[in-house]
Design a protein around this nucleic acid. Structure first.
Length: 424
RNA sequence: GGAGAGAUGUCCGAGUGGUUUAAGGAGCCAGUCUUGAAAACUGGUGAUAUCGCAAGGUACCGUGGGUUCGAAUCCCACUCUCUCCGCCA
């Protein structure tokens, strides 16, 4: 959510920011300004009436004590009370509408974000390793998975439906090994380990920006205002919702493993096979709460922390800076880390690291004070996958496959695989 | 799932329709005293949002409604916490 004061004082800057995202929101901004002016005028008037009412409430008891007649005053106050009630409901209507409109406006891209129309304008920031070269036609991970009998989407389709997987045997162990490797790595590098609830309420989902806009992409629990989380970002960021943190505790850094649930509405047919696009997948998420002046340094560090895991695994990847046309709704700047996927013959997103600046913090009211005497100010929030686990397993199976159909376990994972070095 | 109790400022806690502009205490800040500290004493101090150049106004006693000239207080609904019972990994 953008600051209403920014919209009020610098509407052109907001409009320009939206145009960089290829969105014309001039009409929305103008309507917000109009409603805001009306709302404030009405509110000032109504506050005056309330002041009058409060004064009368103080006078009436002493008048009664002195035996004076209060019926005239009470009659007058009744009218004022009616007017206050009318104004209050009008004001709250305006507030609701204003908030609705403000929530429609995405974050303003940071000036360092390249302008562009879509993902084709993303810019490669750096590259690690080279695409894996095979002397033979490499197999896709879903074929490897079925040949080794470690991935079983067919049974999952029977038990649940499309876009679910059973992992079996060493496949299940590999998934678990990756989770543990990621969590141990981040925990040993300064992140506090979190295991969050997988269900969040509507307020939390709104706080991090999944709602109201993306309700169709979420799984909602029947008859409840509860949602399956699409990412651990939701519960972990909301841990500090409506809190005022102490400046000396910042930056706060969490790493959280969770299963993630996405309805993938509108993705029919895309990435139909394998582990790339599932309704339920595992992910380790990194979340940071930082002071505004550090947030862009922290974004570089967070991206680096996610990259470190891929380096340890020896998987080729590159990092791209998302252009304004590909930037997520709440983000001011995002790096995507993409891992080399031989079956796709291209890099595939395995992490998305974003600085939301104060956009989420304002929605969720997450603030800090350096000193108890200071005015609280909004923190900046960041998060990034560290990393997507299912896609990691897919990348391992494909990049580490051998001509005989077996898969070599990356060295760092061998201890997590109880010493197993090859899956065959 | 059943029964009961509760939610008040940074914390504890009083308050069941109008001298409550939320008592009192703790904490915090300043001062007195002291070689210094503690203690004691004196004074100050809720947090936040919003409107205003300012003075100041308004809102906020779990949340949302309602009654009333006036609600922390009465009514309705909801959420959460605690205790006991039942069930359960």
């Amino acid at each position: 959510m953008l600051d209403i004061k920014l919209i009020r004082s610098n509407p052109d800057f907001v409009k320009e920011g939206m145009k960089r995202r290829n969105k014309d929101m001039d009409a929305v901004v103008d309507e917000i300004l109009e409603i805001d002016a009306k709302r404030r005028e009405l509110s000032t008037k109504n506050d005056g009436l309330k002041a009058e009412q409060n004064l009368a409430s103080k006078k009436i008891p002493s008048m009664k004590k002195n035996g004076e007649d209060t019926t005239a005053l009470m009659e007058e106050m009744k009218n004022i009370a009616d007017e206050i009630k009318k104004d209050d409901s009008l004001i709250s209507e305006l507030e609701t509408r204003q908030r609705e409109l403000v929530l429609m406006i995405p974050n303003i891209p940071h000036q360092s974000v390249p302008s562009g129309k879509d993902d084709s304008d993303n810019i490669e920031a750096r590259k690690f390793g080279e695409p894996t070269v095979f002397a033979y036609e490499p197999k896709a991970h879903w074929d490897i998975g079925s040949d080794l009998n470690i991935l079983d989407p067919e049974t999952a389709a029977k038990v649940t439906g499309a876009r679910f997987h059973f992992y079996k045997g060493l496949g299940a162990r590999l998934e678990r090994a990756v989770i543990n490797f990621y969590m141990d790595t981040h925990a040993s590098r300064g992140y506090t380990e979190i295991l969050p609830p997988y269900i969040a309420n509507r307020t939390s989902m709104t706080g991090t920006g999944q709602l109201p806009k993306f309700e169709d992409d979420m799984f909602k629990l029947e008859g409840l205002e509860y949602f399956l989380i699409p990412t651990a970002e939701v519960p972990v960021t909301n841990m500090h919702r409506d809190e005022i943190l102490s400046g000396k505790d910042l930056p706060i850094k969490y790493c959280a493993y969770s299963a993630c649930f996405r309805a993938e509405a509108g993705a029919a047919g895309r990435d139909g096979r394998g582990l790339i696009r599932q309704h339920q997948f595992n992910k380790v998420e990194l979340v940071k709460f930082v002071k505004p002046e550090n947030s862009y340094d922290e974004l570089e560090k967070l991206t680096g922390d996610a990259e470190y895991c891929l380096q340890q695994l020896g998987l080729p990847y590159h990092v791209v800076t998302l252009s304004t046309g590909d930037l997520g709704f709440s983000s001011a700047k995002t790096y995507d880390i993409e891992v080399w996927m031989p079956s796709y013959n291209r890099y595939v997103e395995i992490s998305s690291c974003s600085n939301f600046e104060d956009f989420q913090a304002r929605r969720a009211s997450i603030r800090f004070k350096n000193d108890t005497k200071d005015k609280p100010q909004l923190v900046h929030t960041l998060n990034g996958s560290g990393l997507a686990v299912g896609r990691t397993v897919a990348a391992i199976l494909e990049n580490y496959q051998n001509p005989d159909g077996s898969v070599t376990v990356p060295k760092v994972l061998v201890p997590y695989m109880c010493g197993i070095e090859i899956i065959k």
